[in-house]
Amino acid sequence: MSNRQPISTAPKDGSEVTVYWVDGDGVANESLARWDAGNGGWWAFTDSTTQKKIEPTSWRPASADDEDQ
């Protein structure tokens, strides 16, 4: 597993990365997400059909293991 990096260094080319963020309830989360320039932010699926704009604090490259989840 790669070390976490500051979100400011994450790719903003639409590629999927693993991000780390805290939700409104203060719960730490790890999600696959993409930067969406058109919507100006990071978006992650919270379930199989719902996307949410999030404010991640760090990231790492998505691994092959992440894609199987």
Rank of each mutant, 00 (worst) to 15 (best):
K12I: 15
Q51S: 09
T9C: 03
I54W: 02
T50Y: 00
S31M: 05
K52Y: 09
T50N: 10
D36T: 10
P61A: 13
D13H: 02
K53C: 07
R4W: 04
A44G: 01
E16G: 06
T50D: 02
E55D: 09
E30Y: 02
G40D: 11
A37R: 07
D13K: 12
R60G: 00
K12R: 12
W59C: 12
T49S: 14
K52Q: 11
D65V: 08
E55L: 12
D23R: 14
S58D: 07
M1T: 04
S31N: 07
A37H: 04
E67H: 11
D25G: 15
A28W: 04
K53G: 05
T50A: 04
W35K: 06
F45P: 01
A33L: 07
G40H: 03
T18L: 12
P6Q: 05
T49V: 15
A64L: 08
S15M: 13
N29H: 12
Y20D: 00
R60A: 05
S2A: 11
A44E: 00
S63W: 08
S2W: 05
P56H: 05
D25M: 15
E55K: 11
L32M: 00
A37N: 09
P11W: 06
Q51K: 10
G38L: 11
D68N: 12
G26P: 14
D68G: 13
T18I: 15
F45Y: 07
D66T: 00
S31W: 01
R60Y: 00
S15H: 07
F45L: 14
G26S: 13
N29T: 15
T49K: 07
T9H: 03
K12C: 09
A37S: 10
V17C: 04
K53Y: 02
A62L: 06
T50Q: 01
P6S: 13
V27M: 09
A37W: 01
S15L: 15
N29R: 15
Q69C: 13
D47R: 07
G14K: 12
A64R: 02
Q5C: 10
G40N: 06
T49Y: 08
D13I: 15
P6K: 04
G38C: 08
